[in-house]
């Protein structure tokens, strides 16, 4: 059996190009809607020193950590300067006006 889909937020509450923190099962996860149904879910915790990425700067698909400027691709979670290091990325599903994450 696969991991379950956890509903996290109503679809109409996630604004385009915004970064929103949700905490299913107590995990800090950032939901980012680029446009329409293009939504990404990544860990809120920078793998460098655990800084919250929520207040980082999003430019295109790149999220920059506010602490030490580590840059991540929100599509893959890869740290741009060393792709061996990455953020956890979670599958996202939108159904019946609800956004769910598979954890």
């Amino acid at each position: 059996m696969g991991k379950p889909w956890i509903p996290v937020i109503e679809e109409d509450r996630l604004i385009e190009s915004s970064v929103r923190l949700v905490t299913p099962k107590g995990l800090g996860i950032l939901l980012i809607r680029k446009k329409g149904s293009e939504i990404y879910a990544i860990s809120n915790k920078c793998p460098h020193m655990g800084c919250p990425l929520r207040t980082g700067i999003l430019e295109g698909y790149i999220l920059t950590c506010p602490c030490h400027d580590w840059r991540f691709d929100i599509r893959t979670g890869f740290f741009l300067d060393a792709p061996e290091i990455s953020l956890a990325v979670y599958p996202v599903r939108v159904a019946d006006g609800m956004i769910s994450i598979r954890l």
Binding site: H48, G50, A82, I85
Partner: peptide, 9 residues
Amino acid sequence: FFGKVVDPM
């Protein structure tokens, strides 16, 4: 923190 960061590299 650093041990976890350098290991995959």
